[in-house]
Design a protein around this nucleic acid. Structure first.
Lengths: 201, 201
DNA sequence: CTCATTGGATACGTATCGTTTCTTACGGAG
DNA sequence: CTCCGTAAGAAACGATACGTATCCAATGAG
């Protein structure tokens, strides 16, 4: 009787890959990004360093893949009755998503990919994935239908604005973005600028 | 005749401290934050590791001190004639200040101080030093005098807004913030929200 | 059944860590 | 001018993780 399951059989392909990504994500959650080592990931996944290095050339690439593998997708937001409450619900959902990611991970990835434009772009794409998720769009459409605003055609900058402010808040303070901060962002910045902008004559 | 000046004499106190901070800053500029090693700093400063560790317990503390030691202060902004051009000038100055700091440094410091609240707060204080510098205040005062806005009494959130957006831009893209981005920030966000906000009755 | 592929174990040399030990230069007190 | 406490500086420590090379065996395709 072996004291520990000696790796029932030798894994390959998808199965092995998922095991490594799961191990990497578990390591990030447990020890944080700066203390994550390839050796620890290999040990946790019950494999060896070369197997990992064959697939991901750097720690950053591995962890980015692990993050994409582990984070859930975006569900639709229910209609909460007003633009303001829709926005609150949206940003609270963003905040909850941030909570799934250790606070040192995003800045860590930015730092380590800084001198490699390709990986830096990959990190940036992940960070700004809100844009691709088109998560703001339905909120604006409902607001137009209610007559609260006049158009969904806002500039890219404006569409980014709430998310940029959330990301900034999260990175700077390194803790969950509070409901109070969300309310500030919406009431003092987002709603005023949405109200002011599409006023054509 | 010695091939290299063998450290003319043994330095102490202020002089030594400045030499170390200068060496640390030079290293950051040369190799970037992730590749900066205490040994390299010691070598460049012509001293030894224990001397550094006696003063700063971590790499992050050393580099933060080096940054504070090396960055210039804030000069007053000349009156450029309008709120918009004043804001443009202000954010361009912020952008130039960002250019003095390698793009991987701030996220690197955030990452490494993440699990030590005290150092994290020190980093945060440095990052948000715009607030303490009260650099926005005179711009608003002049705008009030011109009749462009009605009050300088804006909320802390609004006072942070331009800087938060600049910082976000800089961290995400890891390159100098373009004049186009500055113009977007001002024309699509800051000015509209300033115009919309202090409208009482 | 055979064989090319690739997982997995191991070990290598290197780099840097943070600390310890020891010597010696400096500079203030008397 | 001398003495002596303080701190600089050199060297070496064990530890850890790096990224790579080598080797063997399990696997699955044909």
């Amino acid at each position: 009787m072996p004291t520990e399951a000696p790796t029932a059989s030798r894994r390959r392909g998808e199965l092995l890959e998922r095991a490594i990504l799961d191990a990497a994500w578990a390591e990030v959650l447990e020890v944080g990004y700066p203390k994550l080592t390839m050796e620890a990931v290999a040990a946790r996944a019950q494999t060896s360093k070369p197997v990992i290095y064959r697939r991901w050339r750097t720690r950053a690439a591995l962890v980015l893949a692990a993050m994409q593998h582990s984070l859930p997708g975006w569900d639709d937001l229910p209609d909460t009755g007003s633009l303001r409450s829709d926005l609150i619900a949206l940003l609270q959902r963003v905040a909850h998503r941030f909570d799934l990611v250790p606070g040192d991970l995003i800045p860590g990835l930015i730092t380590e990919t800084f001198s490699d434009p390709e990986s830096a772009a990959a990190v940036r794409a992940q960070i700004t994935s809100f844009a691709r998720a088109r998560i703001l769009r339905p909120v604006l459409q409902r607001a137009v239908a209610r007559g609260e605003i006049t158009t969904t055609e806002i500039s890219p900058r404006l569409a980014r604005l709430p998310f940029d402010l959330m990301r900034n808040e999260s990175m700077i303070y390194g803790m969950p973005v509070s409901d109070a901060a969300i309310a500030e962002i919406i009431d003092e910045v987002v709603l005023p600028v949405l109200a002011a902008t599409p006023r054509e004559s």
